[in-house]
C-alpha cells in the first residue's frame, strides 16, 4: 500500500512537471521573464572576453553584456540576469527546452541551426572567423603546410566541420581530436597531443593565456570560415525576438550616434531627432516592443554602447588584444551596421 502511494505521488509529480514544461513553451517569453523577475541567460563555461566568471562568480564579457542589455531594456536594471554556463553540446537543447531565455554564447549563425533547430538568431554581435594556432617550433607559416597534422578542437561546434572542409578542399590529410570542454582542448594541445589548435580566432586569443608559454605559439594567417556570432532565441516568439534584436541594434546605433554611458545624461536633451527616438524622448518605440520607452537609455547608461563594451572586454587594452577589424562600424570601415530606429 505504501509502495503504491509512493508510485502514485511519483506519477503525479512527473505529470505536473511535464505540464509545467509544456506551459513553459506556450505564452510569451517576455511575460514569463517579467513574472520571474530576471532573465536566464545561457553563456559559455568560461571564454575570457566573451563570457567568463571572475573569482567571486560575477560574469563579464561581450556576450554577457548582451544579456545585461536585454535586462536593462526589460527591467530597467541590467543586473537582473542569471547565468547558465553551457557546453557547446548542451546549448541548443537548453534553449529549446526553455531552460534559458537567451543563448548568448559565441554561437555561429548557420542555416542549419536557423532552420532545423527551431531557433532564431537575433543578430550578430561579433564577426569572427576560424583560425589555427601552432607551436612556433613547428616552423609552419601557412595552414597549407599542415598536411598530416593532429588537430585539437571542441566537439559539437562548427569548427569540426570547417576544419574538415578546409583540409578536404586542399587535399590534405589530418586527424581530429575533439574534446567536450575547451579547457581539455587547451590542456591536450599544451601537452603536445596536437600540432594544431583550431577554434574561432577570438577564442584562440582568449585561450592562449592558459598555455604554459603563450609566446611559443603563433596564430596562422588563414581565416578558414565565416563565423557570425550572435544571440539566439526560440522560434515562434516574435516579440521576444524583437526585444533581443533591438537591444543589440540600440547598442550599435548608440555608438554610431556617439552616445555612451558617460554622456547619455546630456544627450537626453539633444535636439537630434534620431537621438531622441533612440533615447525615447520622442515616439513610442519601447511600447511597441512591449517594454518602457526609456529602454535604450537604460541599456546605454547601464551597459554602454557597443564600442564601449568591445573595448572593455576584448579590445586592445585587454589581454585578448583584438583589433576592431571587421567589427568596426560601417562608417569606420567595418561591417557593423544596425537598422535605424524610426
Amino acid at each position: 500500500m505504501k509502495k503504491f502511494t509512493t508510485a502514485l505521488v511519483g506519477i503525479a509529480g512527473i505529470a505536473l512537471a511535464s505540464n509545467a514544461m509544456a506551459d513553459g513553451h506556450g505564452g510569451s517569453t517576455l511575460k514569463q521573464v517579467q513574472d520571474k523577475g530576471f532573465i536566464q541567460c545561457g553563456v559559455s563555461q568560461g571564454l575570457p572576453g566573451f563570457s567568463n566568471a571572475d573569482d567571486s562568480g560575477n560574469w563579464a564579457g561581450l556576450d554577457v553584456d548582451l544579456c545585461r542589455a536585454v535586462a536593462a531594456a526589460v527591467f530597467g536594471d541590467a543586473s537582473k540576469v542569471k547565468y547558465s554556463p553551457l557546453s557547446a553540446k548542451q546549448r541548443f537543447t537548453a534553449l529549446s527546452s526553455g531552460e534559458v531565455d537567451i543563448l548568448s554564447r559565441n554561437t555561429t549563425w548557420t542555416m542549419t541551426r536557423d532552420t532545423q533547430l527551431g531557433l532564431n538568431f537575433a543578430g550578430v554581435n561579433y564577426y569572427d572567423g576560424q583560425g589555427m594556432m601552432v607551436p612556433k617550433a613547428l616552423g609552419a607559416t601557412s595552414a597549407t603546410q599542415l598536411d598530416g597534422a593532429n588537430i585539437c578542437t571542441n566537439t559539437g561546434t562548427t569548427t569540426e566541420l570547417n576544419i574538415t572542409d578546409y583540409f578536404r578542399q586542399n587535399g590534405m590529410s589530418f586527424n581530429l581530436v575533439a574534446f567536450e570542454k575547451a579547457d581539455e582542448v587547451v590542456a591536450a594541445y599544451d601537452a603536445g597531443r596536437c600540432d594544431v589548435y583550431t577554434t574561432d580566432r577570438s577564442g584562440l586569443a582568449a585561450q592562449r593565456g592558459k598555455l604554459t608559454n603563450p609566446d611559443a605559439h603563433v596564430v596562422l594567417p588563414e581565416i578558414i570560415s565565416k563565423e557570425p556570432l550572435g544571440p539566439v532565441v526560440r522560434q515562434g516568439d516574435d516579440q521576444w525576438f524583437n526585444i533581443v534584436r533591438w537591444s543589440l541594434n540600440a547598442m550599435i546605433n548608440a555608438e554610431e550616434m556617439g552616445i555612451s554611458s558617460a554622456n547619455v545624461g546630456d544627450m537626453m536633451s539633444s535636439d537630434n531627432p534620431a537621438v531622441k527616438r533612440l533615447l525615447g524622448t520622442e515616439g513610442k518605440f519601447g511600447e511597441e516592443l512591449g517594454i518602457s520607452n526609456d529602454w535604450a537609455m537604460n541599456i546605454i547608461s547601464q551597459v554602454g554602447n557597443y564600442g564601449e563594451s568591445y573595448e572593455k572586454h576584448v579590445g586592445e587594452n585587454t589581454p585578448l588584444k583584438l583589433a576592431r577589424g571587421v567589427n568596426a562600424l560601417w562608417s569606420n570601415g567595418g561591417i557593423l551596421y544596425a537598422a535605424p530606429i524610426r
Partner: peptide, 27 residues
C-alpha cells in the same frame, strides 16, 4: 488497476507534451 491507469496516463501525458512542444518549435 488504478496503478496501471496512472502509468498509462503518465506516459500519455509525457508523449503528448513532447509532441506538442516539438510541434511548437517546428520540429
Amino acid at each position: 488497476v488504478l496503478l496501471l491507469l496512472s502509468i498509462i496516463f503518465g506516459i500519455w501525458w509525457v508523449v503528448d507534451n513532447t509532441v506538442t512542444n516539438l510541434a511548437a518549435q517546428n520540429k
